[in-house]
Nucleic acid binder design. Sequence first.
DNA 1: ATGGTAGTCGCACTA
Length: 272
Amino acid sequence: MPKLKTLKVATWNINSVRLRIESVEKFLKEQKPDVLCLQEIKCHNDVFPEKAFKKAGYEHIALNGQKAYHGVATVSRVPLTNIETREFCNKGDARHVAATVPDAGDIRIHNYYVPAGGDEPDVEKNEKFAHKLDFLNEMEAWYKNHKNKKTSKMVLVGDLNIAPFEHDVWSHKQLLKVVSHTPIEVEHLERVQKSHSWIDVMREFVPHDEKLYSWWSYRAKDWKAANKGRRLDHIWVTPAMKGTAKSMEVLTDARGWEKPSDHAPVIATFKV
DNA sequence: ATGGTAGTCGCACTA
């Protein structure tokens, strides 16, 4: 029997974990997730602020960092096993870490930072955009080959850098040619989703005709007043976890904290 | 139509 009755998972693109460690501490103290998945930690494993997490009660850490760019970390109050980091596109980039939570009945959590893709949505002119699509193709191929699709309990979270639906962006029309909301990216994301029949947990709680954002650009004078957001961060689950999500929240307040990340945390609680 | 901000590293790069 699992030790936990519920599993509270949060995902947050922190845009430098060292610069914002105090915000992370505040978040952990207030929200007390069981597991927090961070993206864009922007540091190598050697300089990850491990002590601060341990002091906050998050003693179990699965790391895949790199210097200056990207990097993901999954920190947990309960043990993590079978830690795995997968390298995509032979780039040497740190954009994925997975770990299993035995106390939650062996739910496996995949934490992703999908490439942003640059400015120009054209694979011929922009190799960063090509990299983004390649990365999604690799994700699709990987999950397609996963076994035990009906029984394997997995959560996939992270900054996927794509806002797929009309109301995942402030203006569908104005963003159709803007990287993060182009039809080609959305098609690729849909194929990843189909590869393991992933369920979009955030949209199970917010109807498709309501706006839902997790990111607001730093470049707006007043992010809250402009509210030109996008839903770049996601929480998905496999069919074996269908119906187990009890709540979901985007902690929009955190976007207004001192020295904020441009992303807000997304939190979901699952019945174990 | 353009430029606006932020982080890392130490100038140009990424987002």
